[in-house]
């Protein structure tokens, strides 16, 4: 599924639109606030994986950068700083924020057929 469809499902706010990933298909989800868990568990499919997290800081984006994750969903309407938006754009990472909780976000994506990242 493409990120604009995902944004629609999650009624999400997009601080910018990264045209490089506009047509990219995502099919896996990894949800965690522990970046070491993300680094341990997302490897094989990370280019097609969405990171869902409530952790909003530069390390969230660094973790995504290291794993070639290009879509990060921030739950519960987290506020994005200009620095964070700049960092995401510099590294080609699409950010979106949703009002939904981690549980609701994962439920909505699971319902649409998203699978766990191996």
């Amino acid at each position: 599924m493409k990120f604009l469809e995902i944004a629609n499902i999650l009624d999400a706010y997009l601080p910018f639109r990264n045209s490089d990933v506009l047509d990219k298909e995502y099919q896996y989800v990894f949800a965690s606030d522990l970046m070491s868990d993300v680094l341990a568990l997302v490897t094989m499919d990370s280019e097609e994986t969405i990171l869902v997290t409530g952790l909003v800081n530069p390390q969230t984006l660094r973790t995504a950068e290291m794993l070639d994750i290009s879509l990060v969903i921030l739950v519960r309407n987290k506020i994005l700083t200009e620095d964070l938006i700049d960092q995401a754009q510099d590294h080609g990472i699409q950010l979106m924020t949703t009002k939904f909780s981690m549980f609701e976000t994962c439920g909505l994506l699971y319902e649409k057929g998203f699978k766990v990242s191996r």
Partner: peptide, 17 residues
């Protein structure tokens, strides 16, 4: 821990990959 680290997986991850 506030930054999302300190899960006790650092060295384990490094060795694994």
């Amino acid at each position: 821990r506030q930054l999302g680290f300190g899960a006790g997986m650092g060295l384990v991850n490094i060795k694994r990959v």
